[in-house]
């Protein structure tokens, strides 16, 4: 009788450990699903989101039902020329393999670019960047994930303006 109860107690420890391991593995996989993609422009959002001259927006899923987007991220930074250079660097890293929809170069620098990135997990991905110097220096960077084609996304955006 005693032997049986010892066996039962011994069995409970590994069983609990296995359950914990399964739970952690599942947690890890979910976290990975929700993790930001491997794009370099994510550095811009994380680096400048708490900047005093910046306004950073992150919206996802049901909030964006009107637009049919699954993710919308934007950042607007004012009076920071070095930030613009940093954004340009990060975009240049993500540009490989992407389709350029629009590009404006002024004084040898990219002041505006729309990039159609290769789709990931069934989502079309779009990067929009614009820098203006007058009337005040400011840049905007937008990242959008959507099931819609990038052409449709642009039409929606420009219509909503």
């Amino acid at each position: 009788m005693n032997g049986n109860s010892i066996n039962a107690t011994e069995m409970n420890y590994p069983s609990t450990i296995y359950r914990l391991i399964i739970f952690m593995v599942l947690m890890g996989s979910i976290a990975q699903v929700n993790a930001q993609s491997d794009l370099h422009i994510n550095n811009v959002f994380t680096h400048f989101e708490k900047n005093k001259n910046a306004v950073m927006v992150s919206l996802s899923n049901e909030v964006l039902d009107d637009y049919k987007f699954s993710l919308f991220k934007s950042i607007n930074i004012k009076d920071d020329a070095s930030a613009a250079d940093y954004v340009r660097e990060q975009i240049a890293l993500d540009e490989k393999g992407a389709k350029k929809i629009k590009q404006v170069i002024s004084n040898g620098k990219v002041t505006s670019i729309y990039l159609d990135l290769t789709p990931k997990k069934g989502m079309n991905r779009l990067i929009l960047f614009n820098e203006q110097v007058k009337p005040e220096r400011q840049l905007i960077l937008i990242y959008i994930e959507s099931e819609h084609s990038t052409d449709d996304v642009l039409k929606i955006l420009l219509k909503k303006k």
Binding site: V55, L59, N130, Q138
Partner: peptide
Amino acid sequence: LTLAKEKALTTLSLLH
């Protein structure tokens, strides 16, 4: 959310 959406629209209006 209203504030976030408002700011998103402001940023979009700056798109050329």
